[in-house]
């Protein structure tokens, strides 16, 4: 199969999986697209929204559309790391000899839904870290590789902050995207009522397997990116840092820490998946703009003034994009050089 066919196959698979999810989920077109972008970019996705908006349902539907193993963990304050990773148990063989055997936890699944991840203690949250970043977990000195593809989808609730443990910045940074799930529009809500109050629910077909996802991930990384687009990605990330000369005024005033280089990686990888999903063979500036907010909003840490003033990080990223584009365009203007 040639590369052209593989690209067409990817476009079809992307659209097909999205259509399967949309059989159940009404609206949220952008959220679904970004979740799929995260899946094919090889990253993990954090969904944030108030209860009842269908975050968990979205993830479960996605898992149903993929021929993957799926596990769901409801995070609670008394959840322990061993409840996620697994533990060694004593087994007795036929000859009566006892030995330890590692009993795998729910983390050993292709897709793992970490529901209300901010309700668990930091100790338990940190059990996710190694798995998310390294693709394996270590128990009693022995490393156990996680199945591939390994895709963590976590949800968290922005309200009811009492008794929660906000994810530390280091852990947030390991999510490729942070998506905001908002209230549906009126027409969407009507459609939700129609779909969920019928006797027959929509049936989701499995359209993709694990090896196919891995092949598509490799294909995505082959998408070329022009130097000026790559420079724009770097400029966007730099402009989120208050000490950068190109940072807009709002960043200088309200940002304590800007995005890390992982933000630039997320921008470019996300752009590559979007380009390929549209059947394009290159990353464009528009692709970077499309993924900038989900890729950067959890990587920008506001200072006290920003928190107290209630600065919206998405709005701030909008200004960062304008600033970076302006700086880039000034460089591009061929007449004035």
């Amino acid at each position: 199969m040639g590369h052209g066919d593989r690209v067409q196959e990817f476009v079809g698979a992307f659209g097909g999986l999205k259509a399967e999810v949309q059989k159940v989920i009404v609206g949220y077109d952008e959220v679904i697209t970004h979740v799929l972008v995260g899946l094919f970019a090889g990253g993990h996705v954090l969904l944030e929204g108030v209860p009842g908006l269908g975050k968990t349902l979205l993830i479960k539907t996605l898992a149903a559309g993929l021929d993957f193993s799926f596990s769901r963990i409801q995070f609670t304050p008394d959840l322990m790391p061993a409840d996620i990773i697994g533990t060694n148990i004593i087994l007795e063989d036929a000859e009566g000899r006892k030995h330890f055997q590692f009993q795998k936890g729910p983390i050993f699944a292709h897709i793992r839904l970490a529901d209300e991840v901010n309700r668990a203690t930091p100790k338990t949250q940190s059990a996710l870290l190694e798995g998310m970043q390294e693709g394996n977990v270590t128990v009693s000195g022995a490393s156990h590789p996680l199945p591939s593809p390994f895709f963590v989808l976590a949800t968290q609730n922005p309200i009811e902050m009492e008794g929660t443990y906000p994810l530390p910045e280091a852990q947030l940074d390991r999510f490729l995207f942070k998506l905001r799930v908002t209230y549906p529009a009126l027409e969407e809500l009507n459609e939700i009522i129609d779909r969920t109050t019928r006797t027959r629910e929509a049936e989701v077909w499995r359209v993709m397997t694990g090896p196919e996802v891995l092949r598509f991930r490799e294909l995505v990384r082959e998408v070329p990116i022009a130097a000026h687009v790559r420079e724009l990605a770097s400029l966007i990330v730099m402009a989120t840092q208050a000490q950068c000369e190109h940072a807009p005024e709002v960043v200088r005033r309200f940002v304590r820490y800007g995005s890390s280089p992982r933000g630039a990686q997320a921008l470019v990888l996300g752009g590559k998946v979007r380009a390929l999903a549209e059947g394009r063979y290159n990353v464009s500036v528009e692709d970077l703009h499309a993924v900038a907010r989900p890729a950067l909003r959890h990587r920008i840490i506001l200072n006290f003034d920003g928190e107290a003033e209630g600065v919206d990080v998405d709005h701030l990223i909008g200004q960062v994009l304008e600033q970076a584009e302006g700086v880039s365009r000034r460089g591009k203007e061929v007449f004035l050089r």
């Binding site: 990353v283 464009s284 500036v285």
Partner: peptide, 16 residues
């Protein structure tokens, strides 16, 4: 959408 610039840059690269 940056196709020409990308193609021009990558067409002559050995790691294309």
């Amino acid at each position: 959408r940056d196709r020409v610039a990308t193609a021009l840059e990558w067409a002559s690269r050995p790691d294309r």
